[in-house]
Nucleic acid binder design. Structure first.
Lengths: 346, 346
DNA sequence: GACCGATTGTAGAACGTTCCACGTGGGCGT
DNA sequence: ACGCCCACGTGGAACGTTCTACAATCGGTC
C-alpha cells in the first residue's frame, strides 16, 4: 500500500505529527524510529503502525544536525573510470550493512577534486574515502587533520599521521606482468607509465626492478602515457613508430591499454601476434570479451571493503596499526598476450 | 593559505564563532555568508576576512534544515552505464552554475532503484532526476505526487501529471539507423531489443516502422536482448547460429552492441565485412577508437541540460507546457557499418 | 526641528531531530 | 511499610542555520 501522506497540508510528516498520531511524546517516537531501547513492545508497535499510516520518514539532515554522529562516508570518485565504478559498488556493499550512508561526489573534466571534497565536507561527512586522489600530499595531510581520510589506490611514502592508505602492491603487480611476458619469451618489453597518477610510480619501479632482475636492463623503456584511452593511444603511436619496436607493452591501466590496443589494431599490427599488451586493474573493461585484455587484477571487493573498514575503525576510535593496507594483485591472463613471433634479439 | 581552524577545541567553526570573531551578530554573519543584501561593504569585508581566518564553512545540513529550499537535486543513475556517467557529467555542469547541488545515488546489481530513491528522499532533495528508471509507472506517479520528478530517457505514454519526461526520439533514432543500413544495401536487418528497458519499446517500434516503410516487412526480426554486454553477446550467438543470418544488426544500446561485436569477432565473422553493427547512445564506449561503433547519437549534454532545467522550472513554479521534452537523435557513422558483401536476397 | 525612507544592524523564534535530566509506577527484598 | 532499582516515558534544551520582526542611525526635505 503506497503511503498516503495523511497529514492535512502538503507538508511532509514530521516527528511531531507522528507522535501526535500515536499519542506519545516526540522523544519516545524518536526512540522507536531509531530502534533505541526504552520503549515497550506495545508502544513500539503502535508508533511503527502510525508511521506507516502517515508515511513518515525521518529527516536525515535534521537527524544528523542534532546527533554528532552523521554515519555518513564521503566518497570521491572519477565518474569516467570503470575501476572506480567497481570500487564504489563494493563500498556500498560494505557500508550500508554496517549502518553507514554514502555521499558520492564525482570528479569530472570540469569538476576538480578540490570542489568534490568541498561538497563532501559541507555535507558533514564523518570520514572521506578518496579513490585515486591526485591532490598533492600536503593537501591530503591537511584534510587528514580535520577528519579521518582513506586514500585508495595511491601510495604515499611517508605514512602521514591520520591518513589511512588502502592500495594494491602495484610494484608486485608490474613484476608479475613482466614475469609473465618474459616467461612467454619476450625481452623487449616497454612500459607506458601513468605520469603522476596514483600508483604510477610504484608500477614503474616494479617494472624496472623486474626487468633488471631478468637481466634485461638494456631493454628497459618507459614511454610517458596516462590513465585515459587517448593518452594510451598517443604512447602507442610513439612505440609503433620507433625503430626497435618492442614485442610487448605493459600499460598503466586498462583504459590506457585499450587505447594502445586500438592504435595497434588500426595500424595493422596484430595483437597478440606481433605485440602483446598487458593492462592493469581488471575492471569491467578488461573483461569485455571484445577486449579480452590480459591484465593485472586488483582485488576490488577487498580494496573497497578495507577502505570502508578502515574509515569506520578510525571513527570508532579503534586505533589501526600501520595506517596502510596493501592488497596483493594477481595476474589475469586473457587473450592479448602470446609468445613473440620474431626470434628474440639479445 | 590553508585555513588553520583557529577555534580552540577541535570543533568545526560555527556561525556563532564567526560572528564573535568579526564582532557582529550571527544574523549579520549569515547575511554576509550567503551574499544577501543588508550589510555594508566594510562589515562584509570584515566578516569574510574573519571567515578566512578561522576556516569557516557553512553547514549545509543546518542551512537547509532551516531554509525550506534545499537547492538539492537528487540524481539516480546506473553506476556501470557509461551513458549515465556522461549524463551525470552534464547534469553537474548545468546544475552547479545555477546554484543547485547534486546528490548522487547509484543503482547497482545489489542496490535497487527503490533503495536509491529512498536515500535521496531522506536527504530532502527538492526534485528527483531519474536516469533511465525501470520502476513501474505507478511508482513514478506516486513519487511525482510528492515532489517534481524528471524521468530521463524513458518514454511514458500517458503524460503523468507532475512527471516531467526528457528523452530522445528513440523511434526516429532507430529509423535513422535502418535508413542508413538500407542505403548501404542491406535488407536482412535484425534488431536486438532491450526488453522492458527504458526506450526499448520506441526503438523496437521505430525499427518495425522503418522496415515496413522500406518494404522489408518480411525481414523484420527482433531478438530478445538487453542493456548489458552479456545480453548482447547472447543475442549475437542466436543470430550467428540462425540459418538465414542477417547482414546487419541494430543493437539496443552501445553496451549491447559491444557484446555483439565481441561474439562476431570471436566467431570469425568480420565486422563490417560480413555483418554490420549499429549501437545506440554514442556514449564514451562507442567513441573508443578500438570499438569505433556506428551508433545513434543521443545529444547527451542537451538531455542533461533539459533535465536540470525542467526540474528547476518546476521548483520555481514556472509551469511547463507539455511536460515532455523530446530531443532529436543523430546518426554517427563510424567503422562498424559497410555495404553487405553478398548480393541482397529479395 | 519634526518627519521620512533607506540602509545597516540585532534579537529571538523557528526548522526536525536527538540527547539529557528527570518523573513515574510497579515489583521485590527487608 | 519502607526503600530501591528498573523499565518506560516525558519535557525541554540543544544542534547551526535562516527568517521575521524590529531598532538604530543617517542624510535629506519640508
Amino acid at each position: 500500500m503506497p503511503a498516503t501522506p495523511a497529514v492535512p497540508d502538503g507538508k511532509r510528516p514530521t516527528l511531531a505529527d507522528l507522535a501526535t498520531r500515536a499519542g506519545v511524546s516526540t522523544a519516545l517516537a524518536s526512540i522507536v524510529m531509531r530502534g533505541a531501547k526504552g520503549a515497550s513492545a506495545a508502544t513500539r508497535e503502535r508508533v511503527l503502525e502510525a508511521a506507516r499510516e502517515i508515511g513518515y520518514r525521518p529527516d536525515a539532515r535534521a537527524r544528523l544536525l542534532r546527533s554528532h554522529r552523521s554515519h555518513l562516508l564521503g566518497v570521491q570518485f572519477g565518474l569516467q573510470h570503470p575501476f572506480h565504478a567497481d570500487l564504489v559498488e563494493g563500498i556500498y556493499a560494505t557500508a550500508e550493512p554496517a549502518g553507514y550512508q554514502i555521499a558520492l561526489s564525482a570528479v569530472t573534466a570540469e569538476r576538480g577534486e578540490q570542489r568534490a571534497v568541498e561538497t563532501l565536507l559541507d555535507d558533514r561527512c564523518e570520514a572521506l574515502i578518496l579513490l585515486g586522489p591526485q591532490a598533492p600530499a600536503s593537501r591530503l595531510t591537511e584534510l587528514a587533520g580535520q577528519l579521518p581520510v582513506v586514500s585508495v589506490a595511491r601510495h604515499l611514502r611517508p605514512p602521514v599521521p591520520g591518513l589511512e592508505v588502502v592500495r594494491t602492491a602495484d610494484d608486485k603487480g608490474a613484476r608479475q606482468a613482466v614475469d609473465h611476458l618474459v616467461a612467454l619469451g619476450h625481452r623487449a618489453i616497454a612500459h607506458i607509465d601513468g605520469g603522476k597518477a596514483p600508483g604510477a610510480a610504484d608500477r614503474r619501479r616494479g617494472y624496472r626492478t623486474a626487468m633488471s632482475r631478468h637481466g634485461l636492463t638494456e631493454h628497459i623503456r618507459v614511454v610517458p602515457g596516462g590513465l585515459t584511452e587517448a593518452e594510451g593511444a598517443e604512447a602507442a603511436q610513439v612505440l609503433a613508430a620507433s625503430h626497435p619496436c618492442p614485442t610487448a607493452v605493459l600499460a598503466f591501466n586498462d583504459r590506457c591499454a585499450t587505447g594502445v590496443l586500438d592504435v595497434f589494431l588500426r595500424s595493422g599490427i596484430p595483437v597478440p601476434g606481433a605485440i602483446s599488451v598487458v593492462g592493469f586493474d581488471d575492471s569491467h573493461l578488461a573483461r569485455l570479451a571484445h577486449i579480452d585484455l590480459t591484465t593485472v587484477g586488483q582485488d576490488i571487493p577487498r580494496l573497497a571493503h578495507l577502505a570502508v573498514d578502515r574509515a569506520i575503525a578510525r571513527l570508532d576510535g579503534r586505533d589501526t596499526g600501520t595506517g596502510e593496507q596493501v592488497v596483493a594483485p594477481h595476474l589475469v591472463v586473457r587473450g592479448t598476450t602470446a609468445p613473440p613471433s620474431t626470434a628474440p634479439a639479445t
